[in-house]
Design a protein around this nucleic acid. Structure first.
Length: 799
RNA sequence: GCCCUGGUGGCGAAAUUGGUAGACGCGCAGGACUUAAAAUCCUGUUGGCAGCAAUGUCAGUGCGGGUUCAAGUCCCGCCUGGGGCACCA
């Protein structure tokens, strides 16, 4: 009897389906285990052999845990909102909902074909109104919350209002603007609108302003990576920075907890490090420098090296810094204006590619050193960034290489505070040794001097210790169609959440979800708003006091994926995003498998949302993913043919170096190993139909190279083909066999034969030519010993 | 530049807390079965030296040192592949 994997696999797949074998209940006396894959974005191209790698690993683990007596939650769904579907819609006019549906269906078939044990009764799609209803609901929770820095947790905005009524914001300084202060009396005197504006500075989801790339010709807002060399990637039109009102999530408030939370997680060090870098915590000090001849005006800088305070020889501001216009002297004004224009004309890319070049201008103004009381010049330069720290630095040329280069370029005298350690040629950036020429810091170890310096700065009332983060608040608005609409209505330009009683709305209008309407065109509106702005009947909402206007942007791709792991726990609940009972039972994801590309996007936002929901008492855990494994990429192995230049004649790999040839990629599916199937090649594309060949030993050999698997490189291997030829078990086993789960490796169909043979041998243990050969004879002790050793080994390996 | 990772046969790779390096597979070589081929099965496969042979022996996990009875594994310094961040003050 042959190993007939087709009928075996077919039999069990049908059995699983008919009997709902993998349906999981939330009521079980067994211990729980939650194994999750990063859900895919269902693109039109379908799955290739690289996608299932992580799914196979998680599937094996889920099955293993189930056999070990755990109640295992192992669901799958689709991250269905997103730009590609919208772009496809613009090109073809097909509604994204329809193409997304079709693609998801195709994915589902391909996944089933590989024999995964997902509980499909829990399937979710982020574009489903039953799902995004709760994405919108979570947005409302964010909108109605603020972050209490003292308690280090999110609290309802009502409690903040109560505090404001009692004591103003004196104890709760505003994160965005420290000068924004008011007392209880002022608060009470304000109009509702003024109060709402003040609260906007505290909400976890808030409306702010951001510079975005605006392209007049395309009539749309572009993402950073859609702008190349100062023009739009598509069409090459000019772009400009435009200030737009956008929603943000106040993720910066969670910076410390996001950082500390990493400690307890079983993630790879690389992954944790990426998040740490992204959060970018650095400890140092803010120091105030008074400006000469401008009484009461000062510049605040941030430094991580307060110990080098005596080495400050000048101040540098970002060209966009708000003080620049004020302090620039008349004879420097035109030079400064020219420089600002020059900086504005340069794209991010240009700035990055010319890192070594020193540029800048003297403002003509001077600052007074708060400790040494020296007078030092103030410059502007693009190497200081507005977005980081205070947008101003104290330059210490003897201790910082960029400051050093700047000082040399502008002939600014350099104060040496490191004695022999500084050689006059290159800044001393080390931290070994003692300070010199530094007043009361003289002779103190560099490493210990920071504390002393900060105390002195505080005593002089010139600044304070300060922790700075690189992390920015997360932009949460997209001027697009295919995403979750915001549950927000503006009345006289004041934003209200639709569940607020202050918004005079009919009760039925308050209900979630705010459904995404059908549109005629997916193109953005002329004003730079999203396509939704083109639908007056949807945008305009009657209220008791006049006409309200809906928010016309939609939420970004990461909105739906920031909490989907919770919905799987209770996917059909219409009353809440997931019952407390369900989330208490399943808790956090025990094992999460997915690619590294989400290191700082999805994984950081999910962590924040989880913490917010935890703070507000909706769930009982504050980290979403306990253990994370990153599967590597399976690369494609491309095949090349070599065409004699200017002809339709193809020369085999071993002979190509003797002639002038052009390299062409050829579909890997018509190449066996390296040998080209010439007949299939001729049929592949019409232009090859009458191709001629120069052969080696009667065969045509292709060249090979490893690159990313992609349709355009003709190196895509479809799992369906492999399953059809060898069976799902062989395919699954081979993917696991290719190498360690977490590194990238090329797909090579050759080796699959070995795995297939192994399975055949395995089959032979139980069947011979006549059929089933297993009998009821008792096993010998020796046989039992081998069996149990094997079971033990398999268990340990899987863990 | 900074941070994180890895470097083991011809190839993909194993090797638990420091304890027989190279499991398993690919490829290759030889053999069995066959008129022949495919499929299947068996044997060999890190290198040097010795031996007709079974085998013995020395060397060997990127390079150079070190700790240890014992190092692929731990420590120090270099070389190098991959990934991430990057005028971040």
């Amino acid at each position: 009897m042959e190993y007939d994997f087709r009928s075996i696999e077919q039999k069990w797949k049908s059995y699983w389906k008919e009997n709902n074998v993998y349906k999981v209940t939330n009521d079980s006396s067994k211990p729980k285990y939650y194994v999750l894959d990063m859900f895919p974005y269902p693109s039109g191209a379908g799955l290739h052999v690289g996608h299932p790698l992580g799914y196979i690993a998680s599937d094996i683990f889920a099955r293993y845990k189930r056999l070990k007596g755990f109640n295992v939650l192992h669901p799958m769904g689709f991250d269905a909102f997103g730009l590609p579907a919208e772009q496809y819609a613009i090109e073809t006019g097909q509604h994204p909902a329809k193409t997304t549906e079709q693609n998801a269906e195709r994915y589902r078939q391909q996944l089933d074909n590989i024999g995964f044990c997902y509980d499909w009764s829990r399937e979710i799609k982020t574009s489903d109104p039953h799902y995004y209803k709760w994405t919108q609901w979570i947005f409302l929770q964010l909108f109605h919350s603020w972050y209490d820095k003292k308690l280090q947790k999110a609290r309802p905005i009502k409690e903040l209002i109560a505090l404001f009524e009692k004591e103003g914001n004196s104890m709760l300084p505003c994160a965005a603007d420290a000068t924004f202060c008011f007392d209880a009396k002022a608060w009470k005197s304000w109009t509702d609108q003024e109060k709402r504006e003040a609260l906007m500075h505290y909400r976890l989801a808030y409306l702010g302003y951001a510079d975005v790339w605006w392209c007049e010709d395309l009539g749309t807002v572009l993402a950073n990576d859609e702008v190349v060399n100062g023009v739009s990637e598509r069409g090459g039109f000019p772009v400009e920075r435009r200030r737009m009102r956008q929603w943000f999530l106040r993720i910066t408030d969670y910076a410390d907890r996001l950082l500390e939370g990493l400690e307890g997680l079983e993630w790879t060090e690389a992954m944790k490090e990426m998040q740490r870098n992204w959060i970018g915590k650095s400890a140092g000090a803010e120091v105030r420098f008074d400006i000469q001849d401008l009484y009461g005006k000062h510049i605040t800088v941030f430094t991580t090296r307060p110990d080098t305070i005596f080495g400050v020889d000048f101040i540098v501001l970002a060209p966009e810094h708000e003080m620049v216009d004020l302090i620039t002297t008349e004879d420097q004004r035109s030079a400064v204006e020219d420089y600002k224009k020059y900086v504005k004309s340069r794209s991010e890319r240009e700035r990055m590619s010319e890192v070594k070049q020193v540029t800048g201008r003297f403002t003509g103004a001077y600052a007074i050193h708060p400790i040494a009381h020296r007078v030092i010049p103030i410059y502007i330069s693009e190497y200081v960034l507005v977005g980081y720290g205070t947008g101003a630095i104290m330059a210490v040329p003897s201790g910082d290489s960029r400051d050093h280069a700047f000082a040399k370029h502008f002939d600014i005298p350099i104060t040496n505070i490191f004695g022999n350690l500084y050689n006059g040629q290159e800044a001393y950036t080390g931290k070994e040794g003692k300070l010199d020429n530094s007043g009361f810091l003289n002779g103190i170890e560099i490493k210990k001097a920071a504390q002393v310096a900060i105390r002195a700065i505080e005593d002089a009332d010139a600044g304070r210790a300060k922790i700075n983060y690189r992390l920015r608040d997360a932009g949460f608005s997209r001027q697009r169609y295919w995403g979750e609409p915001f549950p927000v209505v503006y009345v006289n330009d004041v934003p209200y959440a639709i569940d607020e009683q202050a918004l005079p709305l009919k009760e039925e209008q308050r209900e979630l979800p705010v459904k995404l309407p059908m549109v005629e065109t997916y193109k953005p509106s002329l004003t730079g708003e999203g396509p939704l702005a083109n639908i007056p009947s949807w945008v305009n909402v009657p209220t008791a006091t006049g006409t309200g206007r809906r928010e016309t942007s939609t939420m970004p791709g990461y909105a739906g994926s920031s909490w989907y792991f919770l919905r799987y726990m209770d996917p059909h609940n219409e009353k809440t995003f997931a019952s407390r009972k369900a989330t208490d039972y399943w808790q956090e994801v025990d094992l999460y498998i997915g690619g590294t590309e989400h290191a700082v996007g999805h994984l950081l936002y999910s962590r924040m949302w989880t913490k917010v929901l935890y703070d507000l008492g909706h769930i009982g855990f504050d980290e979403p993913f306990k253990k994370l494994i990153n599967q590597g990429m399976i690369q494609g192995s491309s095949r090349y043919v070599y065409r004699l230049r200017g002809t339709n004649e193809y020369v085999s790999y071993g002979l190509k170096d003797k002639m002038a040839t052009d390299e062409l990629r050829v579909d890997v599916n018509i190449v066996d190993g390296l040998e080209l199937d010439i007949e299939a090649f001729k049929k592949w594309r019409p232009e090859f139909a009458d191709a001629d060949f120069i052969l080696e030993d009667g065969k045509y050999f292709c060249g090979a190279g490893i690159e990313k698997m992609s349709k355009s490189k003709y190196n895509v291997v479809n799992p369906d083909d492999i399953v059809a030829q060898y069976g799902a078990d062989t395919f699954r086993m081979y993917e696991m066999f290719l190498g360690p789960i977490d590194v990238s490796k090329p797909w090579d169909t050759k080796g699959i034969e070995g795995v297939h043979r192994f399975l055949k041998k395995m089959w032979r243990l139980f069947f011979d030519e006549k059929g089933w050969i297993v009998n009821d004879e008792a096993a010998t002790p020796e046989e039992l010993r081998v069996l149990h050793k094997t079971i033990k080994k398999i268990g340990e390996d899987i863990e």
